[in-house]
Design a protein around this nucleic acid. Structure first.
Length: 502
RNA sequence: GCGGGCAUAGUUUAGGGGUAAAACCCCAGUCUUCCAAACUGGUGUCGGCGGUUCGAUUCCGCCUGCCCGCACCA
């Protein structure tokens, strides 16, 4: 593992490269920026598109059991009430005025300490698997301090969000042990809201979606009615999502506007969901390595059962070791049929489907592989970023997989004073351009042109030289090895297509 | 939200109450028959707003953004 200083330097270099070469810009930069938002430049837009295309090809086109949709970002606000986001997508926060510590209200627990009903005081602690034992210890300590005899009543832990106002005043700060220093919980919904229509009032309030998943659930009936799907099947979607994050951090890793790629994979309620869940984890991990993520940087984190949402049975994150730490790339949750149940109930529309195999009507359960495009983007750049030495000269390169590299090949005339070389080069460029994102570059020494391409991750450089005039061959140079071989002009396109699609 | 630091060209940095600089990059040209050659020329900069001042990029205040730590992270 890199030292903090080294990893910070590395991250700075990567952010610098992204800016310098036109991958990622800070949003609204000419107005001083805008915290938590980013813009993708010419190369970034290509790379991002390639990630999404690869995912769509592998998860939708090349599978018989998955179809795609593209739902609107602003939907009937009832959807977000049914899904629980209006009430639940909050992080109520409590500050300790004295210690300046901040707690999430739903992570803060307290217990009243009593002996035979007589109140001795209140203890508080932060949620953990051992918190009941800790509470008992704190209660015993309180008893000794007050020099009171007798057996303690049973300790009952209560979450701070469930405290009555009278109880709340009694809760001591976990940091100082003193009561009265905690601010009331401040509600904070992470959904951005807006208004639809000419009138701005409570009735016109709408939300920017915080996840793409609900667009899938809300269209469940439309899709199953029109697509002749049989269980198990998946519905996939790529799209923007918005969350009013308190602290956007780590470049594009946590931003307020981001893009998700989600699949809701519907399964029979009696099926072996553990196996299907495990299969998806494997499928998704293999996909990450197939597009060039360094497999040693990938990890898995299984959510402990006590921290799962009440409707989820299991959730495993696929993580990536970024320079700033190991962080979630994709969450693969087994969610039961909570969402469909909610939408069926709140909309009043029957959403059950008939399963031929079991001859039963049911609301299927769901496995949800959900990942961030932007996080994948960053993980790919981090995986690809390399520095090496060519004949004593330091070079920077991005070892991006040809499938996702923004530019697939560069076509160079070795010299720009020879009309015939220019002609062949330009003809080849125009021909390749019809199939692939390619560039041409006539300026400067050939070595400089190679290095320019290395730095943006272009996997192949094709040079038209004097020999090309004799035998219709060109050199093709490999980015990672810098090795060159001669191939016939006619073979260039099939070669590149093979590398890009393979 | 809190505490600390920072903000000069595309990048890395120098400078200083009185006409703002270097290197690299980029562009054009000379040269050049395969890995950032050389030479010539060129574009481009003090985050924003306000205050002090004859004059502010420099001093002060506020704002915005970035970094580190705390906290937070469906």
């Amino acid at each position: 593992m890199l030292t903090d200083k080294k990893s910070k330097e590395l991250m700075d270099e990567i952010v610098g490269l992204c800016k310098r070469k036109g991958f990622v810009f800070q949003s609204s930069e000419i107005y001083g920026g805008y915290n938590g938002f980013f813009d993708y430049g010419p190369l970034g837009a290509e790379l991002k598109k390639n990630i999404k295309d690869a995912w769509w090809q592998d998860m939708v086109q090349r599978r018989d059991d998955v179809v795609g949709i593209d739902s609107s970002i602003i939907m009937n606000p009832s959807i977000w009430k049914a899904s629980g986001h209006v009430d639940g997508f909050t992080d109520p926060m409590i500050d300790c005025k004295e210690s300046k510590m901040r707690y999430r209200a739903d992570h803060l627990f307290f217990a009243e300490v009593r002996i035979a009903g007589e109140m001795l005081g209140v203890v508080s602690l932060i949620e953990s698997p051992e918190m009941l034992d800790e509470a008992k210890k704190k209660a015993e300590k309180l008893k000794r301090k007050l020099a009171i005899k007798g057996d303690l009543d049973e300790i009952v832990l209560i979450c701070a969000v469930d405290a009555t106002p009278e109880q709340y005043e009694q809760i001591p700060s976990p940091a100082t042990g003193k009561a009265g220093t905690l601010t009331p919980p401040r509600e904070f919904n992470m959904m951005f809201d807006t208004h639809v229509g000419a009138v701005r009032n409570d009735a016109s309030k709408a939300y920017l979606r915080p996840e793409t998943a609900q667009g899938i659930f809300a269209n469940f009936k439309n899709v199953t009615d029109t697509s002749r799907l049989k269980l198990p099947f998946g519905i996939a979607q790529i799209g923007k999502a918005f969350r009013n994050e308190i602290t956007p951090r780590n470049f594009i890793f946590r931003s307020r506007e981001f893009e998700q790629m989600e699949i809701e994979y519907f399964i029979h309620e009696d099926s072996d969901w553990k196996t299907i869940h495990a299969d998806w984890i494997k499928t998704r991990r293999e996909w990450f390595t197939s597009i060039g993520l360094t497999s040693e940087f990938l990890g898995e984190e299984v959510h402990p059962s006590e921290s799962l949402a009440h409707y989820a049975r299991a959730c495993t994150d696929i993580t990536f070791k970024f320079p700033f730490g190991e962080q979630e790339l994709e969450g693969i949750a087994a969610r039961g049929n909570f969402d469909l149940t909610q939408h069926q109930e709140k909309s009043g529309k029957g959403l059950e489907i008939f399963d031929e195999a079991s001859k039963s009507k049911l609301l299927p359960h769901v496995i949800e592989p959900s990942l961030g495009v932007d996080r994948t983007f960053l993980a790919l750049i981090c995986s690809a970023y390399t520095k090496d030495e060519i004949d004593g000269e330091l070079r920077t390169l991005l070892k991006l997989h040809p499938r996702i590299a923004p530019v697939k090949a560069a076509i160079f005339p070795l010299v720009k004073k020879n009309e015939n070389i220019l002609q062949i080069s330009n003809d080849l460029y125009k021909k390749l351009q019809r199939h692939l994102n390619v560039v041409t570059d006539l300026s400067g020494a050939i070595g400089r042109r190679y290095r320019r391409m290395d730095e943006i991750g272009t996997p192949f450089c094709i040079t038209v030289d004097f020999e090309s005039l004799e035998d219709n061959t060109v050199t093709i140079r490999d980015r990672d090895t810098t090795d060159q071989k001669r191939i016939n002009l006619e073979e260039v396109l099939p070669f590149l297509l093979g590398k890009v699609n393979g």
